[in-house]
Amino acid sequence: MARGAARWRRLRARAEERLPVLTEIASRLLGGSLLDAGTRLAAQAFLAAVPLLFAVAAFAPASVRDQLRESLRAMFGLTGRSDVELQQILGDSADEELRETTGAVGLVIALVSATSFSRAMARVCERAWALPKAKTRVAAWRWVVWLLALFLVVLVQGPLRNGFGVGLWLGVPVFFLVSVGIWMWSQHLLLAKRVPWLHLLPGAILAAAATSALALTARLYMPAALNRALGEYGSLGLVLTLLSWLIVVCAGITFALTIGAVLAQEPPLSHHLGPMGDPPGGAADGDATPAPERDP
């Protein structure tokens, strides 16, 4: 037994010496904070998305509502009772006064909670790269721009995932390539340009792969899960199912961005990506607060 343990320690030490990137990834994954960060990100996403959905249903033009409905159907493969619920929210059959009232409340709540979602995503990116928080005056407008871009991305999910009418065989690779670009741009924006573009590529590829795989899984799993939850628990079941799915998605994104940051900073990939260098503008321009000093 002792001999086997000693042999395992030697193998582990040899692996750590030859592939330090694996050690760093294992340390990050086993640290426990990534899953917590993904859960907080999912909670903020849910708190921003639900009231925003009611606000869109109340104030957006019919063409926007129809496009959003088709995109949500494509994202989750909605059929049956869950599709009827979505139609009731975004359709024209709801009472106009009631919809405007709930939409106004949803808009207020969405505006309050939306920037919290942006801040949570920015913090996920900053923790992945071990960077301090950007100053509010630098980051605030980036939070708003990212939210608007995210809404537009959700709005075009229907035609994008269906390959613009051609089918999944085109939609899947197009969705993956678009996702790589989105996650590169998202990191670049939310990190306030403190990391070079090329170094963001590993995390963007991993996040795109995770979201693409989960998108395909959602079309298979979510319709039955949502309809079963609605049948057994009503609207509460719908909320719990969507929140559970958001936790899986946000945890996958958090893990992907963190692993991508480690890969970009550790050999052998760091040799090909080149040095990080100084961020554009740097801390001298007040783009970021300096890292806090540790007590001795």
Rank of each mutant, 00 (worst) to 15 (best):
R7W: 07
L11I: 05
A13E: 13
E17S: 09
G31N: 14
L35P: 00
D36G: 03
G38W: 01
G38T: 01
T39E: 06
R40P: 00
A42I: 04
F46R: 00
A57P: 04
A57F: 05
F59W: 15
F59I: 08
A60R: 15
A60P: 11
P61T: 14
P61Y: 10
R65D: 02
R65G: 03
D66L: 03
D66S: 13
L68W: 01
E70R: 12
R73V: 12
R73G: 15
G77M: 08
G77A: 12
G80I: 01
R81Q: 08
D83S: 15
I89S: 11
G91A: 05
D92L: 09
S93T: 14
D95S: 10
D95R: 08
E96G: 07
R99T: 11
T101Q: 04
A104E: 02
G106S: 09
I109A: 10
V112F: 01
A114L: 04
R119Q: 04
A120R: 06
A120I: 01
A122P: 02
A122E: 04
V124Y: 01
R127G: 12
A130F: 05
A134M: 04
A134H: 03
A134D: 08
A134T: 06
K135M: 13
V145R: 13
W146H: 00
F151R: 06
L155Y: 11
V156R: 11
V156G: 09
L160A: 10
L168D: 15
L170V: 10
F175M: 01
F176H: 00
S179A: 08
M184N: 03
W185Q: 02
L189M: 03
K193I: 00
R194W: 00
R194Y: 02
W197Y: 04
L198P: 01
H199I: 05
A204F: 00
I205V: 14
T211R: 07
S212G: 11
T217N: 09
R219N: 15
P223S: 07
L226V: 04
L226K: 02
G234N: 07
G234T: 09
L236G: 08
L236Y: 07
L236K: 05
G237V: 03
G237L: 03
G237S: 03
V239I: 14
L246F: 06
L246G: 00
I247L: 11
V249L: 07
G252C: 12
G252Y: 05
L257S: 04
L257K: 00
T258R: 05
Q265G: 15
P267D: 12
P268N: 04
H272C: 06
L273P: 07
P275Q: 08
M276W: 07
G277E: 13
G282I: 01
A284R: 11
D285T: 14
D285N: 10
A288D: 12
R294L: 15
